[in-house]
């Protein structure tokens, strides 16, 4: 069969946008292969939200609704997805390369004895075969990968693929997948989930990111970055130097040993543009750099740059943008 099985990630009954991107891309691949896009929702009390995936292109939605699967665990959700895949034998099992999807894909691949490719930025179908493109060496090169196994397991980088046109009224038929996962199958137990984003937009999902580096000179100065971020409904990022100085939490770090982001707009303030930083943000659609050093390497990758003192420029940008939005 040439069906595509798409794990649609949800938390507390809400899908992530990246889940819609995955469903939409899954539908595109399914169409190219002449199969169906079958979305899969795993969790507890998720049957009601399942049908809404029709709007994003799912031909059918399967559910594994079970209290022991309320929280994501590698063993629990991994088993659920693998069991469903064994039943419907899809050509591709896919998910978004979110924190969760990045853990799920290798687990499912191992359980299915299938090849896996993570964090893909391209998926193609040629002569009925699926191949993917993924950045390696921190994005210094891109590899194209083919699969030797009947099932290919892939995760796709959030914010790279479109959600597509949404047909709100289109509901997909929902069916219980009919697989059992027992409490004993779940080997990790989630004790607590603590929100950290405090109302701000999350980094990897943000359309706009304003980042600060060592040029910020102190944690208190990030206030000007935050103000601009609020105006743009953006997330705040940081270079490793800013994180290592203790000005920002580790979770804000963008780069090779931080988050990989792909926003529409990335504004780098007081960041020199070290290769390890570029690794995390070079796939941004539009890059703006503010730096007092005209030779800073960040200007080589930036679409637009301003040379000057960020302590003057960032607040001025905030005022100017407020005027137009």
């Amino acid at each position: 069969m040439a069906d595509i099985l798409i794990y649609a990630e949800q938390m507390d009954g809400k899908f992530r946008r990246a889940a819609f991107e995955a469903v939409n891309k899954g539908k595109e691949i399914a169409t190219a292969l002449g199969g169906r896009a079958i979305a899969l929702v795993v969790g507890s009390g998720i049957v009601d939200i399942a049908k809404t995936l029709g709007a994003y292109g799912a031909d059918k939605v399967l559910t594994v609704d079970n209290p022991v699967l309320k929280d994501f665990t590698v063993s629990g959700h991994g088993k659920a997805v693998a069991e469903v895949a064994k039943k419907i034998n899809p050509a591709v099992v896919m998910c978004a390369a979110t924190a969760t999807g990045k853990d799920l894909a290798p687990a499912v691949a191992a359980l299915l004895n299938a090849g896996v490719a993570g964090d893909c930025t391209g998926v193609e179908v040629q002569d009925g075969k699926v191949s993917v493109v993924r950045p390696v060496f921190a994005g210094k090169t891109y590899e194209s990968v083919q699969f030797k196994t009947d099932i290919a397991v892939i995760s796709i980088r959030p914010n790279v693929f479109q959600v597509g046109s949404v047909e709100q009224s289109k509901e997909a038929p929902v069916e219980d997948a009919g697989v059992t996962v027992e409490a004993g199958d779940v080997k990790e137990s989630v004790k607590e989930v603590v929100a950290t984003s405090s109302g701000m937009v999350e980094l990897t999902e943000a359309d706009v990111i304003v980042s600060g580096g060592r040029g910020m000179k102190g944690s208190e100065n990030f206030a000007i970055i935050e103000e601009l971020a609020v105006t743009l409904n953006a997330a705040v990022g940081a270079s490793r130097s800013a994180v290592d100085e203790g000005w920002r939490p580790h979770s804000d770090q963008v780069g090779q040993t931080g988050k990989t982001v792909s926003p529409q707009l990335y504004i780098a303030c007081g960041i020199s543009g070290a290769i390890q930083h570029l690794a995390g943000m070079r796939t941004s659609k539009c890059i703006v750099a503010v730096n007092k050093d005209p030779e800073a390497p960040i200007f080589q990758i930036a679409d637009y740059g301003i040379v000057g003192d960020l302590f003057e420029i960032v607040p001025a940008m905030n005022e100017e943008i407020k005027k137009i939005i």
């Binding site: 691949a109 004895n113 299938a114 090849g115 896996v116 490719a117 191949s131 950045p135 994005g139 210094k140 090169t141 891109y142 590899e143 194209s144 990968v145 083919q146 699969f147 030797k148 196994t149 070079r282 890059i287 005209p294 200007f299 080589q300 990758i301 930036a302 679409d303 637009y304 740059g305 301003i306 040379v307 000057g308 003192d309 003057e312 420029i313 001025a316 940008m317 100017e320």
Partner: peptide, 26 residues
Amino acid sequence: KTTVVKMEYPPSRPAGRIVGKGVEAV
């Protein structure tokens, strides 16, 4: 279980530009 069939450099970004210097460029 997978084969790398191609390795490429990333698509080059169109040359950027310095819009200007200081607040006047904002």
